[in-house]
């Protein structure tokens, strides 16, 4: 199959279409407008619905309405727009609805800027809205992976009846790479909960208000059990673990720059491994635990003030040292900058 040269945002939209996404609701914001642009062009051709809402609040509530009928649907936005959606995120999680949300994040807090940032890691992995819930969070590092993980997000969100979020940023959203738009197998799951008309069957109810004795607790226990079951979906890319003394960890587009730095260090003979979480929730604890048990130290590189480093520390549970290289926006680091830090980390021993 011939590759096409597309932006990350376009790859996300193509992945959604490949997964059978029928409805898109959104409100424009930089740097993700290529997603609605492509959806506006393609969805009507396929008998789907593209709707530019009057605000992010409207868009996400339209999404809630659409997915409660069992149809595959999505929204996308960037950091400040995602914050606006947070209340409905909580309802999506409470109602266990398989919605797909894309955050092509930018620098914050507040209006921040439009450059690449990973400042929304906590917001993505801890839920953003109120109450005890999580999204399933996937973070691609290449254009091909953006396509495939978006399709996967639709599948997993139905498998677990669970909102799924793609967390990426302006760097991957705006860059172009060859994409092989191959056919993907996206599994379907029975939707015996969908509100698709009760003619000939008993009525169904989707609700998030539980006032009866013990009801809310049972509800939360159910969600907790589901989040635990989701752990089997945890994924990470691990390279050069053999004989490593230091593992450098990064996610998303920044991991590309970090990988380059790791390769520079390995060329010079430094024993460095590379770990990239692909799922941010569930966090792939296993490779971290295994490396920690072998005495490997960690350097966690992020485009924020240090967020994922907390999950790494929880995963290794005090068994090894975890250093943070926290790089808040707005400048992207050079591979050489990270390479120098790797060298310093290793020389200290």
């Amino acid at each position: 199959m011939k590759p096409v040269l597309v932006k990350g945002s376009e790859a996300i939209a193509l992945g959604a279409l490949e997964a059978g996404c029928r409805c898109y609701f959104g409100y424009p914001i930089t740097p993700q407008n290529e997603i609605p642009e492509l959806m506006a062009r393609e969805l009507p051709k396929r008998g789907g619905v593209f709707l530019q809402a009057e605000s992010e609040l409207a868009a996400v509530n339209m999404l809630l309405g659409a997915v409660s009928t069992g149809v595959r649907a999505m929204t996308s936005s960037s950091s400040p727009g995602i914050s606006l959606m947070a209340e409905t995120f909580s309802y999506l999680a409470a109602l266990e609805l398989p919605a797909v949300i894309v955050n092509v994040s930018r620098g914050g807090p507040g209006l921040g800027g439009i450059e690449a940032s990973q400042g929304d890691y906590f917001q993505a992995t801890r839920g953003a809205g109120h109450g005890d819930y999580h999204f399933l969070v996937l973070s691609p590092a290449s254009i091909q992976e953006a396509y495939e993980l978006t399709a996967k997000a639709f599948e997993l969100s139905e498998k677990y009846r669970q909102p799924a979020l793609i967390l990426t940023d302006a760097l991957l959203g705006q860059m172009k790479e060859p994409l092989i738009p191959r056919r993907l197998r996206v599994r379907e799951y029975p939707k015996d909960w969908a509100l698709d008309g009760a003619r000939g069957r008993p009525a169904r109810v989707l609700k998030s208000l539980f006032l009866g004795p013990g009801e809310l607790r049972a509800r939360n226990e159910l969600l907790k059990k589901k989040y635990r079951a989701m752990r089997r979906e945890a994924r990470a890319e691990v390279l050069y673990a053999e004989g490593a003394e230091l593992a450098v960890c990064a996610f998303g587009s920044l991991s590309r720059i970090v990988k380059e730095a790791v390769e520079m260090a390995r060329k010079k003979g430094y024993p460095v491994a590379f770990v990239r979480p692909v799922t941010l929730f569930p966090f792939p604890e296993k490779p971290f635990r295994e490396l920690a048990l072998r005495g490997v130290r960690f350097l966690v590189v992020e485009l924020n003030c240090g967020q994922m480093v907390e999950d790494v520390r929880l995963s290794v549970c005090g068994r090894t040292e975890v250093e943070s290289l926290a790089l808040p926006p707005s400048d992207l680091p050079a591979p050489e900058d990270i390479y120098r830090r790797i060298r310093r980390c290793l020389r200290r021993r």
Binding site: L5, T30, I114, Q174, M175, P178
Partner: peptide, 21 residues
């Protein structure tokens, strides 16, 4: 973008990173 497209058509791996805004 054109250079990247040409590279891809020549069978190379390519990345194209624009500044934007």
């Amino acid at each position: 973008n054109l250079l990247a497209q040409a590279g891809m058509e020549a069978g190379l791996r390519v990345t194209f990173l624009p500044v934007y805004g």
